[in-house]
């Protein structure tokens, strides 16, 4: 499946084998504790099924000083 990851305005297309957000995160080595995830403005959790062409926004948990 191909999806787009978006972080602080930068976008990257990635391909992974799997079905859910959790599968995507594992495949990309992304720690789910470090981000909150959204799709089309809605927050999603690790068990959320993804679809080809989805854009997933990563919102960093750590920011500021």
């Amino acid at each position: 499946m191909r999806v787009t990851l978006s972080l602080r305005g930068e976008k990257k297309e990635v391909e992974f084998s799997g079905r859910t957000l959790g599968d995507l995160l594992s495949s990309q080595g992304i720690n789910p504790e470090e981000y909150v995830f959204s799709r089309n403005g809605e927050l999603i959790l690790a068990d959320e099924p993804l679809h080809d062409g989805d854009e997933i926004k990563l919102v960093p948990v750590v920011s500021g000083g």
């Binding site: 909150v36 927050l43 919102v59 960093p60 750590v62 920011s63 500021g64 000083g65």
Partner: peptide, 17 residues
Amino acid sequence: NVIYALINGIEYSDIEC
């Protein structure tokens, strides 16, 4: 705090010092 801000539409800067 991030989740609360996003749910309630509180816009904030997410850059790091």
